[in-house]
Design a binder for these strands. Structure first.
Lengths: 340, 340
DNA sequence: AAATGCCATTAAATCGATTTATCAGGCTAT
DNA sequence: ATAGCCTGATAAATCGATTTAATGGCATTT
C-alpha cells in the first residue's frame, strides 16, 4: 500500500529505472527507446498511477517548481486579491506557491528569504520592504529570478511591476482642486518605499501648481488598528480647517472612515474624501468614496508572466524590465463639487 | 561561492559527515561525541553559516516541515485573516505553509490534495468542500495529520474546529423577532456543507418557535460577483413584504449591501439586516450592520494547536477531537427595534 | 590470555529520482 | 579482418542529507 518508486516500476517491467526515467521525461525518442517498450511503460505507469517523488526530483535537478510569494500582509485585501490571481496562474503552469507576509519588517523578510532559499524555490515574487536591497541583490547575483511588485528598490536593477503612482495621486488631487477644495490633507503611512514617495510627490505636484499649502500626516504602521485610529483622530480633531482628505492606502482609508464615523463628520459637506486603492468598503460607504483603483488582474498577470518568462528562458542576458500600469479613477459621492 | 554541503564541512574539519550530522541534530551526547569536537564543529558551522539542504533532509526523513493549508478562497477576508494567523504560529514553530484556494470545487481540491501529498507535506489544514470525504479518509488511513475547520465532514472522523453555527443564527434570528420583525428572509449560498446547514437550521428553529414563515433564498456561488448580485436583486424586488434579511456569509452580505444600495432600500426602516461574519464593510455601512463575529484568533489558534499536537506526538491512539467555539453577536443600527 | 564491554568515531546503506558513461551486438567501410 | 558506428538499453554515479551497522583501541572481566 505504500507509494511506488521508480525502482518498483522498473522491476515489475523488467527494465532498468534509467529507461523508465527517460520515458517519463519525454526523452524516449532522443534516447531511441523502442516504441512498444515506451508504450508498455506508459501504460503500466498510468495504470498504477505512479508519480515520481518530487523531493528526490528536486534534489537531483535543483528545481523545486515552487515560487516564493512575499506580500506585505496577506490579510490586506489588495494583497490577498493579487495573491489569489497569482496562485491560479502559477498552478496552471505547474508551479506551487509558498507565501508569507513580511509586515514590512526588514529582519523578518530577510529570514523569510533565507527560508525560501533553503527551500530551493525556483523564483521570487516580492513586495519588498526598505533595507532589503542587499538580500535581493545577493539573490540576483546567484542567478535567482526575482520580480518585485507594488514598489521597487531604486538601487537594485531587477524586474518589477508597479502602477503609475505619481500620476494617480496628481490626477486625483487635481480633481479635488477642480471641485473647489482648497485645504487638502494627505494622510499616509510613514514609509520611504517608492510607491509611497511617488504618491506623496503626485499630491505635492498638484498642490504646487495651484499654490495651495500641503498638509501631510504620516502615521506609523501598526498591526494593532487602535494605534492607527488614535493618531488619525487626533489629527482630524486638530485640523478643523481641512475641507478634503486624501488617504494614501486602503488601510489608512478604512481606518480613516472609522474615525470619520466616530467623530460624526459629514461627507462630503464637512470633508471630502479620496482614497488610494479601491474595495468594497469604499463602494459601500455612504456616500461612496472616490478612489484610485489599482488594476489587480493586470498586476498579477504581469508579475507572473514576467517571472514565468524568466524561469523558462533562463536568459541571463535580457536586462531587467519594469512595467508601469495605469490606474482607474473612480469618482463617487465623497468628492462632489463644492460649487454647484 | 556555491552552497556548502555537509561533506564540505566534514572534509574541512577532518571528521566524518556522520559525526557532523549527529552533532547538528543534537545527538552528540547520545552518541557520546567528545565535547571539544562538538564545539569545534559547532563553531565552524556557525562561522560559515552552513544550513543543511532541506530537500535532502526531507527525502531521507520523510518530513518536510511544511503544512498544507487549503481555504475556500484566500481573497475572502475571513479566510485570509485566519491564514495570516495560522501562518504566524506555524513559522514560529518551524513550519512553513503552502496554501491554496479550493473554490469549494471538489475536483480542484482533490488535485490539490494530491499535490500536497506529492510534496510530502507533514500536515493538512482544510476547509473541505463536499464530496471530498474519500480523499480525506485516505489521508487519515495513511496516518497523515488532518485538521478541518469552518465546517466538517459528517462521515469522516477527524479533528475539526468549528463555531456554534446553529446557536449563532438561532440567537440572531431571535433578536430580529424580539425587535418586532416578522417577515425575515435568510439568504445564503446553496451548499450542503455542515456550517451552512447548521446556520439554516438555527434560523428555522427560531422562526418555528415564533410561528413565522421562513423565506429562504439560496444563491449559486460564482467567482463573478455580477452573477450573485443579479439573483439577489431579483429576489429583493420580488419579495416586497420582507421586513428583515439575514445574510448567511460575509460574501452574501457584501453583495446584499450592494443590491440594497442600488435599489435605494432604506435600512432599517424598509429592511432590517443581520449578517453572518463581521468585517469592516459591515462596521462602516450606514447604518452599521448587525453581525455575528467569528472568533478569528481563537479559530486559528485552535487549528494550529491541534495540528502541532498531532505532529509532535504522532499519537495514533488519541481519538479525534472537535472544538466548537462561541461567536460574538454585535448588535448595530441595521436591526434597530421596530417598536419604539 | 582470551573474551567482553565500552568509547568515540566512521564507513556504508539509504531515500528516489536524474544523468553520465558504458555496453553488447549487428552492420558498414576500409 | 578489424576498426568504427549505430541501436537499444542499462549500470553506476550523483544530489545531500540521515541512519544503521561496523570499527579499532583501550580497559575490564573471567
Amino acid at each position: 500500500m505504500k507509494k511506488l518508486s521508480i525502482v518498483d516500476i522498473a522491476n515489475h517491467l523488467n527494465v532498468s529505472k534509467t529507461t523508465v526515467s527517460f520515458i517519463l521525461n519525454g526523452r524516449a525518442q532522443e534516447k531511441r527507446i523502442g516504441k512498444e517498450l515506451v508504450e508498455r511503460v506508459q501504460k503500466f505507469v498510468d495504470e498504477v498511477g505512479y508519480k515520481p517523488n518530487s523531493l528526490a526530483k528536486s534534489l537531483r535537478t535543483g528545481k523545486s517548481n515552487i515560487i516564493g510569494l512575499m506580500v506585505e500582509d496577506i490579510s490586506n485585501p489588495f494583497f490577498s486579491a493579487i495573491a489569489r490571481l497569482i496562485e491560479d496562474r502559477a498552478y496552471k503552469n505547474g508551479y506551487k506557491i509558498i507565501y508569507c507576509s513580511t509586515d514590512n519588517d526588514t529582519f523578518k523578510t530577510r529570514e523569510l528569504i533565507n527560508m525560501f532559499r533553503d527551500r530551493h524555490v525556483d523564483g521570487y515574487i516580492i513586495a519588498p520592504p526598505e533595507g532589503i536591497e542587499d538580500d535581493i541583490s545577493s539573490l540576483l547575483k546567484d542567478g535567482m529570478p526575482v520580480v518585485l511588485f507594488d514598489r521597487h528598490l531604486p538601487n537594485v536593477s531587477t524586474d518589477f511591476v508597479e502602477i503609475d503612482n505619481l500620476f494617480s495621486t496628481y490626477n486625483a488631487t487635481k480633481h479635488l482642486i477642480q471641485q473647489g477644495y482648497k485645504n487638502i490633507a494627505f494622510i499616509t503611512f510613514a514609509s520611504g518605499q517608492t510607491q509611497m514617495q511617488a504618491r506623496l510627490q503626485g499630491y505635492h505636484n498638484a498642490l504646487n501648481e495651484s499654490g495651495y499649502k500641503p498638509v501631510v500626516q504620516e502615521i506609523v504602521f501598526n498591526q494593532n488598528e487602535d494605534l492607527i485610529i488614535g493618531p488619525l483622530t487626533t489629527f482630524l480633531k486638530k485640523n478643523k480647517k481641512l475641507d478634503a482628505v486624501f488617504f494614501g492606502t486602503n488601510h489608512v482609508g478604512t481606518c480613516g472612515l472609522k474615525v470619520i464615523n466616530s467623530l460624526g463628520i459629514k461627507v462630503p459637506s464637512d470633508l471630502a474624501l479620496v482614497s488610494f486603492d479601491d474595495y468594497d468598503v469604499f463602494k459601500l460607504f455612504s456616500p461612496p468614496v472616490t478612489a484610485i483603483a489599482q488594476p489587480i488582474e493586470a498586476i498579477a498577470d504581469s508579475v507572473i508572466t514576467v517571472l514565468l518568462n524568466k524561469l523558462s528562458t533562463s536568459s541571463q542576458h535580457i536586462s531587467s524590465q519594469s512595467i508601469i500600469l495605469k490606474t482607474d479613477f473612480n469618482i463617487r459621492g465623497s468628492s462632489k463639487s463644492l460649487i454647484n
